[in-house]
């Protein structure tokens, strides 16, 4: 069982932090950032070509962080760039390198990134990719997926949540939220046993984190979330400091 799964099982209010693999081939800065995060985060979410911009494979980045920084990682895997063969092969590679947590996402559409003419794959969608991951006997991942609490399509998002749970998702990370209302409503609409949800808190490059800290406290106090997921995509150097404030 992964450390993340243990922490969640143990009822700890979990903090995860999102980091991008480098756009080049030098892993040193990422490793240093991981070290300076120290033990503040329970796990690091390593993104997969976030924003449809090509970066180093998260498989290798995860291996490196596990090996050289003893990090607990959640590897992101996007449906956008790989067909089912490639998805399975990445999952196996990840497992072999010690990755235990897998976050399955659809992925931002190709036209939004730096290679807008690229072939969007989407051979499997996120639900089917979760099914694929769950079906691999060689790799028993702790599977995560994404929730969109503030969507106007609440009914559809609730349906998707149920399907993801059915497909094997054991935890969820939400898209960035600014309050707990949408999440509450979504979980209520989805029905069934409340899943373990990490609320996405995204901060601007210079933004004061006070609201995020308060929201995290509130979510914890009301038991609406099992933890928070912190991101600061435009200034990841801030993450150690922000994580310090958000580790409740």
């Amino acid at each position: 069982m992964s450390k993340l799964a243990q922490a969640l099982d143990g009822g700890k209010f979990v903090l995860t932090v999102e980091l991008d693999p480098p756009r080049g081939s030098d892993l040193k800065p990422l490793t240093e950032l991981t070290s300076s995060l120290g033990g503040k985060a329970d796990a690091l979410v390593i993104s997969d070509n976030r924003g449809a911009v090509a970066r180093m494979s998260p498989v290798l980045a995860c291996h490196h962080l596990i090996k050289h920084a003893s990090a607990e990682v959640i590897m992101t895997l996007a449906c956008r760039d790989r067909n089912r063969l490639a998805l399975a092969s990445e999952m196996l590679a990840a497992a072999a390198g010690g990755v235990e947590n897998l976050l399955v996402v659809s992925g931002d559409f190709t036209t939004l990134g730096d290679q807008p003419g690229a072939q969007p794959v989407f051979d499997l969608d996120s639900v089917q990719t979760l099914q694929l991951a769950a079906s691999l006997e060689e790799a028993a991942f702790f599977l995560g997926a994404v929730l969109a609490p503030d969507s106007t399509l609440m009914g559809m998002q609730a349906l998707k949540l149920r399907k993801k749970v059915q497909a094997g998702a054991a935890f969820f990370i939400t898209k960035p939220i600014s309050n707990g209302e949408g999440l509450g409503a979504l979980l209520a609409q989805a029905g069934g046993e409340a899943p373990r949800v990490l609320a996405g808190l995204e901060l601007g490059p210079e933004e004061d984190p006070a609201w995020a800290v308060e929201l995290a406290r509130e979510l914890k106090a009301q038991g609406q979330a099992a933890g928070v997921h912190l991101s600061c995509p435009e200034n990841q150097a801030r993450l150690p400091e922000l994580a310090g404030q958000l580790a409740l």
Partner: peptide, 9 residues
Amino acid sequence: KGMLNGPCG
């Protein structure tokens, strides 16, 4: 994205 199981995020 040709999503078959509901909308993406």
